[in-house]
Amino acid sequence: MLKFSKKLLYAIEAVVDIAYNSGGEPVQIREVTSRQGVPQRYLEQVMQRLVKAGILKGIRGPKGGYLLAKERSKISVGDIARVAMELGDEGNNGLPSDVATGPIGTAVIRPVWGEFQEEILVMMDKVSVEDLTNRAFRNGVPSEVYNRITYTI
């Protein structure tokens, strides 16, 4: 189940960074790690899974990087969370294996915790990458898109 792990937060941050900074051009992983302070070792595995899941598209070559595989409005935070859940040790409804193992824990607490996790995913499905990029813009987060625009007269 859902666990608010570093990989989950890094995955969301990376996808939003790419959406916010790509301007239609591939974004290299080192750019994301530089802007967001995310360790590259965590991000590489996450990015590969996001490509496999159809959230990102990997572009090879010297000017390669990552782009969104579909429109920002069509990717939810829940979509990203589900990919990140595949990467982590998310068994036991996100609870450590030594917690809630008695009869009440097994029959009541763990199933209820699983229901909580599902409700969180439903809420995450209501928030799109576009919603988060719009929030970044409103909050004045600088975007590389403006640095990539060239004017010719």
Rank of each mutant, 00 (worst) to 15 (best):
M1H: 10
L2F: 10
F4G: 05
S5I: 04
K6Q: 12
K7S: 13
Y10K: 00
E13S: 15
A19I: 06
Y20I: 07
N21P: 07
E25R: 13
E25N: 12
R30P: 00
V32R: 01
V32E: 04
R41D: 08
R41Q: 13
Y42S: 14
Y42M: 00
V46T: 14
L50D: 04
L50Y: 05
K57S: 10
I59A: 02
R60L: 12
P62N: 14
G65K: 02
A69D: 13
R72E: 15
S73N: 08
K74L: 09
V77H: 03
V77C: 02
V77W: 01
D79I: 10
D79G: 09
A81L: 07
R82I: 04
E86F: 02
E86V: 05
L87F: 05
G91I: 08
N93T: 04
G94V: 03
L95P: 01
P96V: 11
S97T: 05
G102A: 07
G102P: 00
P103F: 11
I104W: 08
G105S: 12
R110E: 14
P111K: 11
Q117F: 00
E118Q: 14
E118L: 08
M123P: 00
K126E: 15
K126A: 15
V127M: 08
R138K: 14
G140P: 10
E144C: 00
E144S: 13
V145S: 01
Y146N: 08
N147M: 03
R148F: 06
R148N: 07
